[in-house]
Structures are given as structure tokens and as C-alpha cells.
């Protein structure tokens, strides 16, 4: 027997109980020659919140951004595997990533409103899609669902950048949901926010899952237990000389936190809590 025969760890596939909206099967994700993530199967269930947790650099953002081809903007990025969305592989040759992103929206770690009025920020996506209906009504609806309407209804003409950090993040959420995408990806949406704003965004997410499917990266274990229905735990493998991220375990949040199958998960979670 040679040394390479020792098989790499691969997580047992998570059997989703409900409808799977995005079925992500990563074989390998590269940045140039650097293997960032390997062998991870991450199904995203409809009308649920899927949380990604794990140590820094394990590839949570990389996997999340692969779900709407945001990583295509990085030239050295290369994805091997497939991401099935409503029966189509979004990495298929004929698929236009721009169209994918209109169905699978994104909220970023840092609030990033455009330098336009609050109203124009929310209306941006509607105008982009040449929305024929009542734009004003949709803007109000989006701001109400983002729990921001009462704070900004008298100053819709003000700059989006004049809001506080928490308000800006809720504005970005309103902007993302104004076009009523199917799935919303959030990369540490609360890391720039204080505890009160964090609570507001969390409550908002719980409301949003009635209509949307959400996937979220978080560094905050409590946050994962508070909002995620399903949790995927990633880790970094340094044994091969590189720093390759991979999925360790995925399951219902309760099970992951109370009765993890893998030793690694247990250590990570207890380390975080104690």
C-alpha cells in the first residue's frame, strides 16, 4: 500500500427533507493553482435558511459566491462540479451569469449602497429589469419588508450613504428583494452591525424565508442557532500541504449543535461556546 491510498475525508451527503432549490456539488474550486475547496455537497432547501459556519479561510464565502457565479468576476477562479438550479447547471456553457444573478441575489458583508437616493437604490433593480408595474409601490413594499420603511419614509430623496451602517445594510437587503429574487445569498450580513441592528436583520431573515430561500455565511455560532434551519460546517485541511477547505458535516441546525456526528464539528462548536 502506498501513502496516497489513505482516502481523503468526504462528508456524508445531507439528505434534505424538502424541496432543494440549489443543489451544489463542488468537486474542486481553484484560485489559479491554489485548491481552495474540494468535495463538498451543499443542497440549499426551499423556504429555509441554510447557514455556513467554519473557521476563517475554509472557503465559506467561496462556496456561497459560487452559487450565483459572483466568483466569475475573479479572473483566476475556476469551478469544477455543478450547481443545479431548477434542473439547470448554472455552470453550463450556454448559461449567462448575469441572468443567474437576477434570480439569485446577494447581500454583502459590508453594506454597499449606491451613491444615489434611498429610493433610487431600491428602484435600481426594478429599472434594470425594465419593471412595468408600479415602481413606487414595489419600493415601499421592499422597504417595509426590510423593516426600514418607518425610518426612511420621510427622506426617500436623501442619499443612501447618509444612513447608519445598520440602516444601510437593511437598505441593501431591500434593494436585493425589490426585484423578488428566488434565492438570497448573504455573506456575513451582520458583521458590520451592532447587536440591535443584528437582531433586526435576523428577525427580518426569519420573515423573509416565508417567501424566499436564504443561504448565509456567519461567524457567529449563536446567530446560526438563532436563524439557520440547516447548518453546513466547513473546515480547512492542512495535511496535504495546502489549505483546502471542505465540508465536514451538514444537517439540521439542532443536530449539528447538539449531537454532531463528527469529532471535528464537536470540537469547533464546543470551542466556540465554552
Amino acid at each position: 500500500m502506498n501513502a496516497t491510498a489513505e482516502a481523503l475525508f468526504v462528508a456524508e451527503p445531507f439528505q434534505a427533507s424538502g424541496d432543494v432549490v440549489i443543489d451544489c456539488k463542488v468537486d474542486k474550486i481553484f484560485y489559479g493553482d491554489f485548491l481552495a475547496v474540494r468535495d463538498s455537497i451543499v443542497p440549499i432547501e426551499k423556504h429555509k435558511i441554510t447557514g455556513f459556519i467554519g473557521p476563517s479561510g475554509c472557503g465559506k464565502s467561496t462556496v456561497l459566491r459560487s452559487l450565483n457565479r459572483m466568483n466569475d468576476l475573479i479572473q483566476v477562479f475556476r469551478f469544477e462540479g455543478n450547481v443545479m438550479y431548477h434542473g439547470q447547471d448554472i455552470y453550463a456553457k450556454k448559461v449567462d451569469p448575469v441572468v443567474v444573478r437576477r434570480y439569485i441575489g446577494m447581500v454583502f458583508q459590508q453594506p454597499n449602497p449606491f451613491s444615489m437616493s434611498i429610493y433610487d437604490n431600491v428602484a435600481f433593480g426594478l429599472r434594470l429589469n425594465r419593471f412595468k408595474g408600479d415602481v413606487e409601490e414595489r419600493v415601499e413594499k421592499a422597504l417595509r419588508s426590510a423593516a426600514l420603511w418607518n425610518e426612511v419614509k420621510d427622506k426617500l430623496k436623501n442619499s443612501g450613504l447618509s444612513l447608519s451602517g445598520g440602516q444601510q445594510q437593511r437598505l441593501c437587503i431591500a434593494r436585493a428583494i425589490a426585484t423578488e429574487p428566488d434565492v438570497l445569498l448573504m455573506d456575513e450580513p451582520c458583521s458590520a452591525l451592532d447587536p440591535i441592528a443584528t437582531r433586526q436583520v435576523e428577525e427580518l431573515m426569519l420573515e423573509l424565508k416565508e417567501h424566499y430561500t436564504l443561504a448565509m455565511v456567519t461567524h457567529n455560532m449563536q446567530q446560526a442557532t438563532r436563524v439557520a434551519d440547516t447548518t453546513a460546517f466547513f473546515s480547512v485541511d492542512i495535511s496535504q500541504g495546502g489549505r483546502t477547505g471542505y465540508l465536514v458535516e451538514m444537517g439540521p441546525t439542532r443536530q449539528i449543535f447538539e449531537d454532531p456526528r463528527e469529532q471535528l464539528t464537536k470540537e469547533y462548536i464546543s470551542g466556540e461556546f465554552s
Binding site: L73, V98, F108, N112, F114, G125, T179
Partner: peptide, 15 residues
């Protein structure tokens, strides 16, 4: 113009 503003636009599905 900050990169994150451009990211936001790409994330909305802009060409």
C-alpha cells in the same frame, strides 16, 4: 468608485 459598489451592481445582475 469603490469595488464593493461595483460588486453590488454585479450582484443585482448587471452586465
Amino acid at each position: 468608485v469603490p469595488q464593493r459598489m461595483k460588486d453590488a451592481a454585479y450582484g443585482m445582475g448587471c452586465t
